[in-house]
Structures are given as structure tokens and as C-alpha cells.
Simulated assay, not measured.
Amino acid sequence: MTVLLTNGTVFVDDDLRAQAADLVARAHEQGAHRLALVRDGDAEAALSPDLSELLIQVLTGLARGPVSVSALPEELTTTVAAELIGVSRPTLMKMVRDGVLPAHQVGSHTRLRTEDVLALRKTRARERREAFEALLRLDEQFGAD
């Protein structure tokens, strides 16, 4: 059972949490990475990979306990930005000082555009992946016994 409050909060009972856990387990067993919506008697509507991933993450979280989902604002605090990028706040502030990440002041507070933070996050993920792949190539080249 679900209860929707006027502020957009949705409460679910233990049965629905158990259903979420079962669905996530089956999706992992079957290697499913995309979800689809099916209405009785209607054609299937496939969800985009990004939306499928979001719903799988929400269901995974729901199976474990309470979940909160919200949209990111246009501007972020340094604490939230650091968490999104996966660095400490002092490291984030160094990135701002060094010009790696643009920021602006709102009074005495530093604010960052969400778009800039997500772009940096994506760049860092790509760089990590490339570095890992380079290490794998070195491992294959020199062989690790």
C-alpha cells in the first residue's frame, strides 16, 4: 500500500518494500538493465537506460529502508558539490581556487552551478575509467603471474 501526501512524500508499507526487494533480486539474476512499463492490454513502453537505472536504484534503496528522491537545484553548496564529485570540501575549494571548477559568491558563501559540478564528475569518472583500462593493458602486456 502507498500513501501520497500533498507535499509529494510517498509512504510505503513493508509488503511493497518486499516486492521491491524481490524485483531487484530478479533483475540482477536475469541481468536486466532496462525496465519497461506494461499496462493490461497495451503495448510495452521501454524506459530509457537512465530512467531504468534511476528506478532500479530507488527500488534497491527502498528494499533496504527509507528512500528520499529529489531533483538537484540549479546551484549547490560546497558540501553537496564535494559529495557529488567524491572529494573532501577542502579539495573542492582548492579546485575552485585553481580554476578547475567555476564558482561564485553569494554573500560570504561559495556556490557552484549543478551543471558544472556534474560535468566535472563525468570527466573525473571518464579519466578514472581510462586510467584503469591503461592499467589493465599494462597488466596484459607484462603479465602478472
Score class of each variant (00 low, 15 high):
P102E: 01
P102W: 06
A103W: 02
A103T: 07
A103H: 03
A103N: 05
A103G: 10
A103D: 05
H104D: 01
H104L: 03
Q105W: 04
Q105T: 13
Q105H: 12
V106E: 08
V106T: 08
G107H: 02
G107L: 03
G107P: 02
G107A: 07
G107E: 05
S108D: 04
S108R: 13
S108A: 09
H109M: 05
H109G: 00
H109R: 11
T110C: 06
R111W: 00
R111E: 00
R111G: 03
L112F: 14
L112V: 09
T114L: 05
T114Q: 10
T114D: 07
T114E: 04
E115Q: 15
E115V: 15
E115L: 11
D116N: 09
D116R: 01
D116P: 03
V117D: 09
V117M: 01
V117C: 07
L118I: 13
L118A: 09
L118S: 08
L118C: 07
L118T: 14
L118K: 00
A119C: 02
A119I: 02
A119Q: 10
A119R: 10
L120F: 06
L120M: 11
L120I: 09
L120A: 08
L120N: 10
L120T: 12
R121K: 14
R121N: 07
R121E: 08
K122S: 14
K122R: 12
T123C: 01
T123G: 02
R124C: 01
R124E: 08
A125W: 08
A125R: 15
R126D: 00
R126L: 13
R126Y: 07
E127H: 06
R128V: 09
R128A: 13
R128Y: 11
R128E: 15
R128C: 00
R129C: 01
R129L: 13
R129E: 12
R129M: 07
R129N: 04
E130K: 14
E130S: 11
A131P: 01
A131D: 13
A131V: 08
A131G: 03
F132H: 11
F132S: 12
F132N: 06
F132L: 14
F132M: 09
E133N: 13
E133S: 13
E133R: 14
A134T: 14
A134S: 14
L135W: 04
L136Q: 14
L136M: 10
R137M: 00
R137G: 01
R137T: 06
R137I: 06
L138I: 04
L138F: 06
L138H: 10
L138N: 08
D139E: 12
D139Q: 14
E140R: 05
Q141Y: 03
Q141L: 13
Q141R: 15
G143D: 05
G143F: 06
A144K: 05
A144M: 08
A144E: 10
